[in-house]
Lab assay of single mutants.
Amino acid sequence: MDVFMKGLSKAKEGVVAAAEKTKQGVAEAAGKTKEGVLYVGSKTKEGVVHGVATVAEKTKEQVTNVGGAVVTGVTAVAQKTVEGAGSIAAATGFVKKDQLGKNEEGAPQEGILEDMPVDPDNEAYEMPSEEGYQDYEPEA
């Protein structure tokens, strides 16, 4: 019985440690998101679009440190934060509304985080759909 109880105690310690790591990862992701939003706020009209992409990228980098179902929630929060940063930029006159959601080359930025393969159960990952990809044929 002692062996059984000791095993359960060790398992509990492992769960607590994993929860603490997840909590730490979420806190880091939130900190990076805040950094990115402050970065966007300090940019001029020309830099705002690039700044919004930076927020998304920093958040995406930190999301990889967070495991399990938390990833889905962090990704949703990050996307809403990026959308909010863009709205703030438009409201303050840093950028025109028609410039939001495009990178410096004018290509749409939507789907940055949505296409990231995420499995809350950590069982399997699927690649994003290939609808947006084109076949590449090298020139002879």
Rank of each mutant, 00 (worst) to 15 (best):
G93Q: 15
Q134W: 14
E57D: 09
Y136F: 12
V49E: 01
D119A: 15
Y136Q: 05
Q79P: 03
T75K: 03
I88E: 04
V66F: 12
V55M: 13
G14P: 00
E28R: 12
T22D: 00
G7D: 01
T54F: 04
T33C: 10
V71Y: 15
Q62V: 14
E137H: 06
A11K: 00
E114I: 13
G73T: 08
V95M: 03
A56F: 14
V77S: 04
S129I: 09
E20P: 00
A27D: 02
K80M: 14
F94Y: 12
E131G: 14
G93K: 05
D115N: 08
K60F: 11
L113H: 12
G111K: 12
T59C: 04
V49L: 13
A17L: 14
D2H: 01
S9K: 03
A69D: 05
Q24T: 09
M5G: 01
P108Y: 09
G51R: 10
H50Y: 11
F94N: 03
K96W: 12
E28D: 13
A91D: 04
G31V: 01
V40Q: 00
D121C: 07
K32V: 13
P120L: 03
A11E: 00
V52Y: 13
K6V: 14
E105H: 15
T64L: 15
E13V: 14
E126W: 12
T54H: 05
N103G: 06
L113Q: 13
S87A: 10
K34Q: 12
Y136W: 07
G41D: 00
T54L: 14
Y136L: 11
A78G: 05
A78D: 02
V66G: 01
A91I: 14
V70Q: 04
I112P: 02
V74R: 00
A27H: 06
K58E: 02
K23G: 09
G132C: 05
L100Q: 03
P120K: 08
G41C: 13
K23N: 00
K102D: 12
E137D: 04
A89L: 14
K96A: 07
G101V: 07
T33S: 04
E114A: 12
V52C: 08
G31N: 09
L8Y: 07
N122M: 05
G31E: 11
V63Y: 03
V37N: 00
D121F: 08
Y133D: 05
E46I: 06
A90S: 06
V49W: 11
A76Q: 05
L100V: 11
E130K: 06
K97Q: 04
G14Y: 15
T59N: 01
T92F: 14
K96I: 11
A30W: 15
P138Q: 08
G14V: 14
D98I: 14
G51V: 14
A76I: 07
A27P: 00
A90E: 13
Q62N: 12
K102E: 05
L100N: 13
K45N: 02
G68E: 11
K60R: 10
A53S: 02
D119E: 06
D135S: 02
E114M: 07
A19P: 00
L38P: 00
G25Y: 13
V74N: 02
K43L: 10
T44I: 10
A30R: 02
K60H: 13
Q24D: 07
G25W: 14
I112F: 08
T59F: 15
A30D: 00
V37Y: 13
E131N: 10
L8A: 01
L8F: 13
V82R: 12
E137Q: 03
E35T: 09
V118E: 13
L100T: 10
E123A: 07
A11Q: 00
V95R: 02
H50V: 01
Y133N: 11
Q134M: 11
E13L: 12
D135R: 03
I112V: 06
E20Y: 07
A85V: 15
E110W: 02
K45C: 10
V71D: 01
V63R: 02
L8S: 00
P128T: 05
E105A: 11
K6P: 02
V82C: 06
K10R: 14
S87C: 04
E126M: 12
G31S: 05
E57Y: 04
Y136S: 03
K34F: 07
E137L: 03
E114F: 05
